[in-house]
Amino acid sequence: MHKIRPFTKLTTVILPLGLLQACSFSDSSISISESIGSSSESSIGSVASSGSSVSSEAASLSKEKKAYRDDVANLTYSVAGSSMTARDFPNALARTAGQFKISNWSQEKATFYGIGKGLKRAGIPKENIARQAFLANVLTANKDALSYIQSGYSH
């Protein structure tokens, strides 16, 4: 194990020179490795228990799905009360889902759990969820949308 050497005045003088090349992108994109990486990671713990209720499912997502849910929650938190329209919010969801290789956000429960979580954070009362104009198309995209959102709101 290595230990960081204490900072010294000398290095303060030398280092700004090196800073000229700091913070650059690393050219190390390797598709197959990523795919193998995701293959070996995302399935771990992603098996939801069979027959579990909607509410317990919302609390027991896989690590990957939780990350997706949280991005959706932060998106929802950001746009709740903004000028985002019902027509455009699905587009925002699709872009967020795409980051996680999900193409059908409306078939993914974590989407709705995330919306619920974001609405709660934004201070929208639970009973007003269905009245949020920007959610109009989301609520019709999946027959269970509202119950999933409410479940996400509660966790």
């Binding site: 995302s42 069979s50 999900i102 078939q107």
Partner: peptide, 23 residues
């Protein structure tokens, strides 16, 4: 491993299906 895990999911899961496509 992915094929085995896929059928263990109680419901369809796009992410797992996609990983099978990639592999």
């Amino acid at each position: 491993g992915l094929v085995t895990r896929e059928s263990q999911h109680p419901e369809p899961d796009e992410a797992n299906y996609h990983q099978i496509e990639v592999a």
